[in-house]
Amino acid sequence: MITEASKSASSQTKVKLWIDIFIFIAFLVVMEPHLSDLPVHEWLGLSLTFVMVVHLLLSWDWIIQITKRFFKTVGGQNRINYILNWLFLLDGVVIMMSGIMISRVALPALGLHLTLGPGWYKLHDLSTNVALLLLGVHTALHWNWIVSTLSRYVFNPVLALVRK
């Protein structure tokens, strides 16, 4: 029973790691619309929203646990992490909404044409720059998890293969 539970946790960690790697690479590609081309930028950006839902689902237990205990017995780092994650989510929503508003490819392809209000372009630029910094802080706060999981599931297996 214990081995089954640990196996399930281990496979969930693996899925989480690969999803996070995908999000990181996709985020970097999406950050450069002049190089990746507008259709790639818009469709990849929209698909990131759904990948983010999976990322949140995989962290569901942590989110619920901290939400319940936030005003009671949450440690300093968890509290900062939780607030930062909400800021990151809000920033992500701003990026998504402003991106939808200024969309020239994805939304017209779906048959939707929005009347553009002023300020959406600037907001999209500003929120993506903020996201870059928030991603840095998010990465820093999860650094131990990233290093240990990468060495466990990527570096050590690769090293073992090389040594053979």
Partner: peptide, 11 residues
Amino acid sequence: FIIAIPVFAIV
């Protein structure tokens, strides 16, 4: 590089 700045500054 921009992402690495807060990472190094915190880690």
